[in-house]
Design a protein around this nucleic acid. Structure first.
Length: 991
RNA sequence: GCCCAGAUGGCGGAAUUGGUAGACGCACUGGACUCAAAAUCCAGCGGUAGCAAUACUGUGCAGGUUCGAUUCCUGUUCUGGGCACCA
């Protein structure tokens, strides 16, 4: 009986489905384990071999945990809302719901072939009303809450109203006084009001003020606008000034937008990283994204010169300029101030003398796109004509305007300390501003030195103090004299939460008289209406604005962004069919945190931060019992494509009649392509190749006699990797590729007229357009799902990125065939028997149990696969076909290769699923040896080996070793200085 | 520019706590079986010298600590990833 993997795999996939083998219950006396994959966006391209890597790893772990006696939640779903489906709809006129549905079907059939143990009864789809009802519901909770900085948690907005009615907002100032809502009466008050003032406000003002506090709020703000996509994008969706999806240019634009006040959670998102098991790289990425820095805000008085000829007296106190700095210790090194071009003070402080120049500069800055600004960082700027007064030295400090200061960070203004800051230094040098040195020898006059280790000079009351310590001293002084305060800043911005798009969750919000009102819960889900056109609505609004019934109800016309549904989907798996709640508290208490979350690094700052914030929020308002969603996160590496190239030759030739032709049907092997730049007419190489080409031409034109007069080798041209065996082109298949475009192709092989045609290789991203995708379906068809699963794991550590290479899959397939042969032989039939196992055989088994258990626990799946191979080889060598050994081995292997194991399990006479067995117990006693071969070294050089009893002590070992004639020879009569004995490992004698 | 991770045979990669480097697989070479092929099995496989036993050498490069270093320390080069005017 041979290993017929196709039959076996189809049979068991059906059996598991029929028997609901992977059904998971929320009621179980077993301990729980929650193993989660990042659910996919169902794109039209389908799966390539890179996608299942993480799914296979988590599947193995889930099955392993189940064998270990855990009740394992492992489910799959689709992050189905998003831009690509809508772009596709615009281009092809197919409704996103239809294309998404088709893509999901395709994904599902691809996934099913690999044999995952998902509980498909718990499948979720973020674009289904049953799901997004709860996305909308959670949004309403965010809308109905604010962040109380005193208690450090989210609270209901009603409690805030109570506070306002009693004490105004003295104890709870506006989170960041940016006035997103633009309410004039509120701004007039500077954002502060008393209880009486609050009670006197009209409804509109009250609601506008509350909006400044809500965790989900609508306001005006500068957003990343992508014209090509017709929508705003969150910061993490913009890479180098272009959109992450599609690479379209992105500009800054002020628009009315919904936001999530994630900045209120910045500190807790940071602290939370200490209690989760993420990779250091991942923690660092999130930490950098949050970008917490502490320092001080310092106020400088701005003076204006008396206008008119020759006047140099500072007379009028114009305004105050607040800067943010992390280095208040360098306050005496300030030589100038710089404010962002968009700073509100620009207009106010600029003097008439400099006005036209400043205006020219502002015009220039405006003309520069975000992208240009990032790409070329030249020093630009203009003097405003205004000065401010140093709060301590009372010196006049010029105020400059430059684009290197960003309006969005800190106060949009800085105090420039050129001796300590590289950018300030460049600026000072460029505009010839004199530089004050406050760090003595640490500054060499050529380069700024951002050290904190210098002892301050030229710094008045800070003189002689180490910079590190001076930071505190300076802040205290600044606070003492009332010119500033300690301040913590974050790079992270509030998350833009609306898209001017169709294919997303509608906001359950109704607008009345400019006030946003939540829809009643009973009206949820607010279903996405059908549209005929996906064109944007008027004035930057989404397609929903084109629907009369929608706008008649004054419903919000924006939709939620792609990350809305994915921020909480892991909770829905726990209780997917609940129509009364997003997730029953009992269910979320039982399943609790995700024990293992596997996915790519690309979500480091998007999805992972948002879902962490939503979890903290739901925790704050008492809906779940934990505030970090993922206990352990494993990032699978990316599988890159390995592209193959062929090299076309354009050759000119002439026949004996003097007729010349040009032929481009000949391809040369890599060896010749590598030399293409060195080959010149008349060279030895050139002559050799032109002769070969003439020979090949005679194949294409058999009746003519052409001689090559000139040729050139083109750059490599991508060829489908599936037409290549390793690097060797499969010529017959290549000739049929692209409907026979290459049917006349002739090849100059590696050895010239004979040998193989070898392709060039390059590693790049896997994509259809590069012809380097490998479809898992093809591999499953050829080798079976079990081989495919094990091979993906065998490639290397899950976390590592590597190019795909199909070559080695044969080795894994051979292993499974060999494993099968321990049970059944093609010719001899049944091999397994009921005989009692020997110690040697049990040793093989228990070595495998130990290794595989350890490796699976620590996600070292590649070494675990090796361990299976070793065990199988050893048992084959021992001719061991004993059920006593094979049965536990089968259970060990079941998480990795479930189909073959299930089949053999049943062939061994069992009727239940192998998944319900328990993981074999490792027994130390089978591995215990009474004695062991020890390597004996003299001064670290291996000299001999001696068998020593394992329980021998230090002295006994010394005696045995010194008695050995080989060692005696090496010692040459000298007594050893030291004998180092590492139990179980080695003995080293130091002379 | 800054931060992080890595560099081991022809290739993918092992070596879990400082203890016999190169497990396992691919590729390659030779052999057995076969009319032949496939499949399977056996042997070899870092480098240098040697018929061989064996010796020396060897984990990007240069040093250091140690009886002993792929592993720890210092410097350096290269590769991959992240951030990038964040004051």
């Amino acid at each position: 009986m041979e290993y017929r993997f196709t039959d076996i795999e189809t049979k068991w996939q059906q059996w598991w489905k029929d028997h609901k083998t992977y059904r998971v219950s929320n009621n179980s006396p077993k301990p729980k384990c929650y193993v989660l994959d990042m659910f996919p966006y169902p794109s039209g391209a389908g799966l390539h071999v890179g996608h299942p890597l993480g799914y296979i790893a988590s599947d193995i772990y889930a099955r392993y945990k189940r064998l270990k006696g855990f009740n394992v939640l492992h489910s799959m779903g689709y992050d189905a809302f998003g831009l690509p489906a809508e772009q596709y709809a615009i281009e092809h006129g197919i409704h996103p719901a239809v294309s998404t549905e088709n893509n999901i079907k395709n994904f599902r059939s691809q996934l099913d072939k690999i044999g995952f143990c998902y509980d498909w009864d718990r499948e979720v789809n973020t674009s289904k009303p049953g799901f997004y009802k709860w996305t909308q519901w959670i949004f309403l909770q965010l809308f109905d809450c604010w962040y109380n900085r005193k208690t450090q948690k989210a609270e209901r907005i009603n409690e805030l109203i109570n506070i306002f009615e009693k004490e105004g907002n003295e104890n709870h100032p506006v989170p960041d006084a940016k006035f997103e809502i633009r309410n004039p009466s509120f701004e007039l008050l500077g954002g502060n009001f008393s209880a009486d003032q609050w009670n006197a406000f009209d409804e509109k003002t009250k609601q506008d003020i509350l909006m400044e506090y809500r965790l989900a709020y609508c306001g005006y703000g500068e957003v990343n606008w992508c014209e090509a996509l017709g929508t705003v994008l969150a910061n993490d969706e913009v890479i180098n000034g272009v959109s992450e999806r599609g690479g379209h240019p992105v500009v800054k634009k002020t628009l009315r937008q919904w936001y999530l006040r994630i900045t209120e959670y910045a500190d807790r998102l940071l602290e939370g990283l200490n209690k989760v098991d993420f990779s250091e790289a991942m923690k660092e990425m999130q930490t950098n994204w949050i970008g917490k820095s502490s320092g001080a805000e310092i106020e400088f008085r701005v003076m204006s010169r008396e206008s008119g000829e020759g006047s140099s007296n500072l007379t009028s106190d114009v305004s105050r300029l607040t800067v943010y700095t992390t280095r208040p210790d360098t306050i005496f090194g300030v030589d100038f101030m710089v404010i962002a071009p968009e700073h509100e003070l620009v207009n106010e402080i600029v003097t008439d003398e400099y006005r036209s120049e400043v205006e020219k500069y502002l015009e220039y800055v405006k003309s520069r796109s975000e992208r240009e600004r990032m790409a070329d960082k030249k020093v630009t700027g203009v003097f405003s004509g205004a000065y401010c007064i140093h709060p301590f030295s009372k010196k006049q400090i010029p105020i400059w305007i430059s684009e290197y200061v960003l309006i969005g960070y800190g106060t949009g203004a800085i105090m420039a300390v050129p001796c300590g800051d590289e950018r300030d230094h460049k600026f000072a040098k460029h505009f010839n501003i004199p530089i004050t040195n406050i760090i003595g020898n640490y500054y060499n006059g050529e380069e700024a030195n951002p050290t904190k280790d210098a002892i301050l000079e030229n710094s008045d009351f800070l003189n002689g103090i180490l910079m590190k310590d001076a930071i505190e001293v300076a802040i205290k002084k600044i606070e003492e004299i009332g010119i500033g305060k300690r301040k913590v800043n974050y790079k992270m911005r509030d998350a833009a939460f609306s898209r001017q798009r169709y294919w997303g969750e509608p906001f359950p919000i109704v607008w009345k008289n400019g006030i946003a009102y939540p829809l009643d819960e009973k009206e949820l889900p607010l279903e996405l209406p059908h549209v005929d056109s996906y064109k944007p609505g008027p004035e930057g609004e989404g397609p929903l604005a084109n629907i009369p019934e929608w706008t008649a109800r004054h419903l919000e016309t924006n939709t939620m962004p792609g990350y809305a549904g994915s921020s909480w989907y892991f909770l829905r798996y726990m209780d997917p069919h609940n129509e009364k709640e997003f997730c029953d508290r009992k269910a979320s208490d039982y399943w609790n945190q995700v024990d293992l979350y596997i996915g790519g690094t690309e979500h480091a700052v998007g999805h992972l931060l948002y879902s962490r914030m939503w979890t903290k929020f739901l925790f704050d308002i008492g809906l779940i019992g934990f505030d970090e969603p993922y206990k352990k996160l494993v990032n699978q590496g990316m599988i890159q494509g390995s592209s193959r190239f062929v090299y076309r030759v354009i050759c000119k030739a002439i026949n004996h009649k003097g007729v010349s032709i040009e032929c481009n049907d000949i391809f040369v092997s890599k060896r010749f392509a590598d030399r293409k730049d060195m080959m010149k007419m008349g060279d030895k190489d050139w002559n050799e190749l032109s002769e070969l080409l003439s020979y090949k031409l005679s194949k294409i034109f058999p009746l003519e006699d052409y001689k090559v007069t000139d040729f050139s080798i083109k750059d490599g041209q991508r060829v489908d990797v599936n037409l290549v065996d390793g690097v060797e082109l499969i010529i017959n298949e290549f000739k049929e590729w692209k409907n026979g475009e290459f049917k006349n192709a002739e090849f100059v092989f590696e050895e010239g007229i004979s040998g193989k045609y070898l392709c060039g290789v390059e590693t790049e991203k896997m994509s259809k357009s590069k012809f380097n995708t490998v479809n898992p379906d093809d591999l499953v068809y050829k080798y079976g799902a079990d081989t495919f699963r094990m091979y993906e794991m065998f490639l290397g550590p899950v976390e590592m990125s590597k190019p795909w290479d199909t070559k080695g899959i044969e080795g894994v397939h051979r292993f499974l065939k060999k494993f099968w042969r321990l049970f059944y032989d093609e010719l001899k039939g049944k091999m397994w028997n009921e005989e009692a196992a020997t110690d040697a055989e049990l040793k093989v088994l228990h070595k495998a149990i130990k290794k595989i258990e350890e490796d699976t626990e620590r996600f070292s799946f590649n070494t675990a696969v090796s361990a299976f191979m070793i065990a199988t080889n050893e048992l084959a060598d021992l001719k061991c076909h004993k059920k006593e050994v094979l049965e536990p081995l089968l259970i060990l292997l079941a998480p990795y290769a479930p189909h073959i194991c299930e089949e053999l399990w049943h062939l061994l006479g069992h009727s239940d699923t192998i998944l319900d067995q328990s993981f074999p117990r490792f027994e130390e006693k089978y591995l215990v040896e009474s004695s062991k071969e020890y390597p004996i070294s003299v001064n670290g050089k291996l000299r001999t080996t001696i068998t020593i009893s394992l329980d021998a002590g230090q002295d006994e070992v010394a005696q045995i070793v010194l008695a050995n004639p080989v060692i005696q020879k090496w010692l040459d009569g000298k007594p050893p200085k030291k004998i180092i004995f590492v139990k179980g490992k080695m003995v080293n004698i130091v002379v």
